[in-house]
Amino acid sequence: MQDNLILRVMAKVLIPVILIYAFYVQFHGDFSPGGGFQAGVIFSTAILLYALVFGMDRAADVMTDKLLIALSAGGLLLYAGTGVVSMLLGGEYLNYSALASNPLTGQHIGIIVIELGVGLTVASTMLLIFFSFARRVVSR
């Protein structure tokens, strides 16, 4: 698909919009529909579109396997780590009220951090799965 001009131009226009939308869904998820799961999936579709139109190799140069594995494990650790931190600060596991002096602020911090963890894990796992499949197609 690399030589199709219309596809390339449309993809170049669409990809930044999709990426910004993913960030909006991630960080505005407290007030409007959205959250980590949706944002992660939308983010990965943007990279997926890039890989489909401009070729796997160029996408894999930016998103290397090592980076993706680190991100997906890191997101999960961020989530679980938030629970440990709230435990060290005197609350129960994953009780965000202990994260700040004001319970409401603590809840807010906790929700944003764990949504970030969810988003990281989902986005990088989806990309990892897609790249594994795509490599099978290319190498055969």
Partner: peptide
Amino acid sequence: TGVPNLVTAVLASYRGFDTLGEVTVVFTAG
């Protein structure tokens, strides 16, 4: 929770354990 979107509030705060498990499943599948 201070979050107007109740789906996010339940997902991230009330049922935080549940969501941690789901994220683990996604990671394991990957």
